[in-house]
Structures are given as structure tokens and as C-alpha cells.
Amino acid sequence: MKTNENPYIPYFATVEDTWFETGGERAIKTFKVVFDDEEVRKNWSHRPGQCAMIGVLGVGESMISISCSPTEGEFLRFSVMKMGKVTQALHQLEAGDKMTVRGPYGNSFPLEKWEGKHVLTIGGGIGQAPMRPVVEYVKANYEKYGGLTMIYGARTSGDLCFKNEFEEMARDEELSCHLTIDIEEEQWGHNVGFVPQILLDVNPSPENAIAVTCGPPIMIRFVLENLKKLGFEDDQIYTTLENRMKCGIGKCGRCNAGNMYVCKDGPVFNYATLKEIPEAFA
């Protein structure tokens, strides 16, 4: 793979397509980007769960999880919530515009290890972004896995990311795909209720299963609680952390949580490890 010797120098990539997943103050916009350099494009490989440092020159960079599976093609997808200076600048990008990309960074979901198991993903809001590549990966290699259950919720249907994709999935009888929103809406044909509750309703078996969760801290807390109720062991549960990051390569110290560098030791953590780091859920 062609690499920049200096890991701080980003690659340039062109935005091929963008669309809004959600609207409002903290809208989520998805970018489909392609590296400018053909060699970089060919040699780039990432694994579900990994992140990349994306940015706009002159504004800065943000660590964003790669929300597509490498199985999808020679492009990258990022879903970005408008929060601060950098994400605001990113939101201004349209098809044809340039962004910078460094990475991929961090560890990934041990999908090989999970082969033969039933994969359960539980996501909330923008937390579904790192979940999506797992879903896509398992779908693409469905025969290798013991099944896929997806639970995904948001406050309202307007806050759901990847809504069309998932609605289609929900119609697929082979997959167990459960969408939910907090409050009843008209013409909403799916579940209503908080994600942790839906998890109990779906009642997945911990037998030979792996649970992956990501979402707002409060949701994670109750999901973990409920997973335990369902009989999941700590080492069957995975989650991804999101901390403030600057360098992405374990130097700047920003992302430390306890003795972990989230950018290198994470972002994917097994709950057995994570619960030993008090700062992780601070």
C-alpha cells in the first residue's frame, strides 16, 4: 500500500455523493468519498469498526467511524453529525468537493472470531454508524454466521439514519431487523419504545451469540443492564468508544481513557475490558 511516510499528512479524496440522514440543528449528513490517488484507492483497506480522520484543510480534522463495509466497494462512507467547527465545515461539502482522509485507525470488530455465531447489533441514533459496517459485513458473508439481529432506534423517525436501507432490511424475513422510535408517529410501521426495552421484547438468546452496541451513554447503560438480564456474558458484549482525538495514532494523548488510547487500543472494546476502565463511561 502506498502510504504517506508522515502519518499526519492526509490523503485527498473527492466527495462523490452526499445526502442527509436526518435534519435539524444536529443534522447527520452522509458522505460517499473516493480517494483521488488511484493507488491509495486500490490499497486502502479497512475493517468494520475502524475510524478515519477526515477533515477540511484550514478548518481541521475529526475522527469519524467508517460507516461502510469494505465489502461494499472502493469508496468510503462517513455519516457526520453537525456538532462543532469541523463537522460544520464538512456539512458544507457537496459532490465534487474535496475532503482529507487519514487512516484507517484503531482496532476493529473481530468478525472472523465471531464466525458461526449469531450477531446482534443494538444501535441508537448516530451510534448506528459504526454498527452499519458490521451489519453489511455479516450480510455479505451471511453463510458464515449464525444469523443477524439488528435493533436500531432513534427519538423520532426523522432521527433515524440509513432509514431506507433498514426499512428494506426490516421487510427481509430472513433477517431479524427491528426499528424503533421513542414516541408513536403516524404511518410508522415498526416498534415504538426505547431501545433497551425493545431489546427485552426481541429477547435474543445469548447462546452462541455476540452483542454489539453503540449509542448515547444513557442508552448503552441500560442496554448493558438488559443484556446481562438476558444472560449475555461480559465477553460476549462489544461496544465502541468515542473520545476527543487529535492525532489518531496514539501520540497526542487526547483520547486516553484510563490506560487506553482509544485511537489505538479502541475504538472497539470488549465489555470485559471496558468495565475495568472507570473513565470509559464517565
Binding site: Y8, L57, G58, G60, K246, K251, G253
Partner: peptide
């Protein structure tokens, strides 16, 4: 050894 990274702009010239 911790550090911050910032882009600083001066007119059209900039640096990280």
C-alpha cells in the same frame, strides 16, 4: 508530551 493540532489561517495561507 500531549499536544493539540490546529489549523491556522492567515488570508489564504494556512498551516496545520
Amino acid at each position: 508530551h500531549c499536544f493539540d493540532i490546529q489549523d491556522e489561517v492567515e488570508g489564504f495561507d494556512a498551516r496545520r
